[in-house]
């Protein structure tokens, strides 16, 4: 990766991280989008989409409730898309390493959100008297600080993630020995298992839900058999 590409990936990750909570929440942060954008930026959008689709299965589980901690998928998707685009999805291990890098980044992003929220609380506390006096300027300043802090958080997470990609992910890819088949089947299976658990929770696992899912799966199965 060239320095310009690294810089663009870091900025993309920060932009997607900002969408996770602070601005928009139009869901460009979801792995399906963020990983595809990263792949596209590095000239391999389809590889990014493959990693994003598999990571999306895991993200189905996430419920961003209140003050609870949850993974941050914006920077995670960009990291996964970067790794798979660098390795090439056809390369054994690229998908597995991309998912692992994405999940580690999601954990890092999760921890960084806790820190960010504490920093914003401190900033808000410093302006508390002005806000309590009904100053619109103070309200706007707290708000602007929150956005700036989240951008800084996203950049920080992405810089660490890209360092991890260079120091850990690329060497693992270089030394990967396992053949292609299990190298892709295992991560897809793990991700799908998390997705299935999320769907069972979402639907309550009722007989009706299972019947509908089975009908959908039967249709897909028939399609796969017919199309070979």
């Amino acid at each position: 990766m060239s320095p310009v590409e690294i810089a663009l990936i870091v900025l993309l990750g920060a932009f997607c991280a900002l969408d996770t909570v602070s601005v928009g929440q139009v869901m460009i942060a979801r792995p399906l989008c963020s990983a595809t954008f990263a792949g596209a930026l590095l000239g391999r959008p389809l590889d990014g989409l493959v990693a994003g689709a598999v990571l999306e299965l895991i993200a189905l589980e996430t419920m961003p409730f209140g003050a609870s901690r949850y993974p941050e998928w914006g920077s995670a998707g960009v990291t996964a898309g970067t790794v798979v685009a660098l390795g090439g999805a056809e390369r054994p291990g690229a998908l597995a390493v991309a998912l692992f890098a994405g999940l580690l980044t999601a954990a890092l992003g999760s921890a960084s959100m806790v820190l960010h929220r504490r920093v914003v609380a401190a900033a808000a506390a410093s302006l508390r008297d002005h806000v309590a006096a009904g100053s619109a300027r103070a309200v706007s300043r707290v708000h602007a600080f929150g956005i700036a802090s989240d951008v800084a958080r996203g950049i920080g997470v992405m810089v660490l993630a890209m360092a991890g990609v260079g120091v850990i992910a690329i060497p693992i890819l270089r030394d990967w020995r396992m053949p292609y088949g299990p190298s892709v089947a295992v991560p897809v299976c793990v991700a799908a298992a998390v997705g299935v658990a999320a769907l069972l929770r979402m639907s309550g696992g009722t007989t009706r839900a299972i019947a509908i899912a089975t009908a959908g799966a039967a249709l897909a199965g028939a399609l796969l058999v017919v199309t070979g």
Binding site: V21, S22, V23, G24, Q25, A67, R117, R118, V120, A121, A124, A125, V142, H143, A144, F145, G146, I147, D150
Partner: peptide, 10 residues
């Protein structure tokens, strides 16, 4: 669209 921009634990 930015309602959570200054989200904090307080």
């Amino acid at each position: 669209l930015t309602v959570q921009a200054s989200y904090n634990y307080e």
